[in-house]
Design a binder for these strands. Structure first.
Lengths: 201, 201, 201, 201
DNA sequence: GATGAATGAGCCTTCATTCAT
DNA sequence: TATGAATGAAGGCTCATTCAT
């Protein structure tokens, strides 16, 4: 891979990735041909192979890209002093994002990656990382909640955190399949879980 | 496709499906070639195409097969008088199934189908059906719970049901990606949700 | 090939040939699969291969069948004392036959064989034979015409005969391609050729 | 099919068509595999499919190619003031062409197309067009002949034109099947038809 | 003889990738 | 670097033919 003018190169790479993302979201990894990406990007085969060694590397790069997006959602938690409000903020941010066209497109790709993870070590790594990070943040919040006495000390923060992530993964699935999906219903259900782990008076 | 006698046909079909399932679980739909299935089944191309018109039809059939398996898990609910116990039974049955080799294999295929649903109408139908059925059963149980006064009348049974299903879908994902997964932790988290919707005293 | 009960066998053969003929006329040799013939005949693969060693042999047999049909048209000439009337009778018989559904079907197959003749020695033999026979009969008639003084002695009977046959082959082609075709126009043109070879007064 | 630059494209297309033509003339459309064409052209599968979408499209293109060749023969008529000489010129040009290796090869393909026309609408169109054009030219010549008083006013120019074309189609068939064929005999027979439609004195 | 499920060579076509310009 | 024509391995599928029942 070339090393001239990193600035331009990065821009080109991004151009290609954006095109690939559009194709992948539309037709999936396997249905998308390099030709599709070429057409979408308005570039040439040679050019793309100058920036990515193979289709797989392109998919990989798309995966990394997605990563950042999800990580950003977690930022919502940082601002709240109350850990439970932090959790609510994360949940709300996710639900909002899921309703935006851009967010949906991103998650269509995520679902591809989830399936791909089963047979690509590197992608699995990525995907798992995409779970661990929110789990870590949520776990942290729950622990703070326990310290503050608003979360039941009996619960295992990590497994609740993973459960919350699981819940939202399931929401994503149902949303992507076109099931009617209500953010407020989802939020209410989330609150139920929160109240389930709250300290009993 | 020549019309085959029902006698041998069903057995042969099953044989082929079993082989396909093994391949699909191992390598995914797209990485699996018909040749792979042929080798696995110990049959010939012509024979397979005598039973399934195309690779897509094979995938479709695999999807239907999976369907049955999930439906069976719901049977767990039928025996319990207490609706909450019914829910617990379903959860437990799912978690147990997820730990069996056979159950895992089946879910590896499920994940393929979840992704495939994004661009195959028919598969999406199947997958959505695979959500609706458990949602219906769970909704029913929650409603009975409300009538019996053990479930908070304020909750929306259907959205809680969908949340529960979502939770388990997320568990499946995490399990498939090789995250250390504890059934009892999952069950505890489930109980937390249950207590979150229980009638407050 | 078996040799039991020649009577039944011949009937079976005929049944198969009739089915094959129908398929071939409808879709051509190459587009017709053995399965098509099987379906049309209401028999089984094994049965057909009990009577014909291969698809090529079936085509061959169809060719022979067609042969007889054309030969019958020549019979028209036998009854007329006047050789020119004999020619007219042959021409008329051919034109009439070409308007019948059955005759057209037969010629659709003929055209297949004409093309096939280019690369199958045996079929070429058949096809050439299908030209030689009418040419022989017509030549004979023309020679009688010359002897009787109604046909110009300067003409070469054989080459005129071949020309007449060529003319009708061309008519067949045009008819098969769906060009509007008038028997009487064709007959008039034929008369023109006849008058062109008549003895000049 | 990627869009290729017109520069190389035309040449490459021609190269492929020439190779295909050689194969088709030798073995017919159906016996010729794309591999054969690839080998003959010294190219690759991908390259061929970059220029022709399918084998059928290749056949189609070959048909169009043949078209031009026949049309060129009609040019022979343009130079002669005498319409009958024009007809003779067309006849002679056809007969000469039929004796050349190149002409024969072209007609072997024509015969394939004639048969193919029975079940391919587009090819039938082409083939019929290949009849109509010479028929139109000849009809015109005959009409001029009638106006000049050298052709009998009683004859129908169009049906005579079609008969002439039919005659030559038949000649082509017989020639292709390897029947000894004499151009001068054919020409003499043609003259007989001409004299048959000449004005009687 | 008849049946029809099974065979498997081989066909058409696609598409990730390369490389001369 | 970018281009885009060319490559060719490999995939899905067909269909003439066989053979155990």
């Amino acid at each position: 891979m070339p090393k001239l003018k990193p600035a331009t190169m990065a821009a080109r790479r991004d151009e290609i990735l954006r095109a690939a993302e559009a194709c992948f979201a539309r037709q999936g990894f396997h249905q998308t041909t390099i030709s599709d990406v070429i057409a979408e990007a308005g570039l040439s085969a040679g050019c793309i192979y100058g920036h990515f060694a193979s289709k797989d590397e392109l998919i990989q790069a798309i995966g990394e890209r997605r990563h950042g997006r999800d990580a950003a959602l977690l930022a919502a938690a940082r601002d709240s002093a109350d850990p439970l409000d932090g959790l609510r903020a994360i949940a709300r941010a996710s639900l909002v994002d899921m309703q935006k066209e851009e967010g949906l497109r991103s998650r269509r790709i995520a679902l591809q990656l989830w399936a791909e993870a089963l047979r690509d070590e590197a992608i699995c790594e990525q995907v798992v990382d995409g779970v661990r990070k929110p789990v870590a943040v949520i776990t942290e919040l729950l622990q703070r909640g326990q310290r503050l006495g608003v979360v039941d000390r009996a619960v295992n923060p990590r497994s609740i955190a993973r459960t919350m992530v699981a819940m939202f993964q399931g929401f994503v699935l149902q949303r992507l399949w076109g099931e009617p999906f209500s953010s407020s219903d989802a939020m209410t259900a989330f609150e139920a879980l929160l109240s389930g782990i709250a300290t009993r008076r």
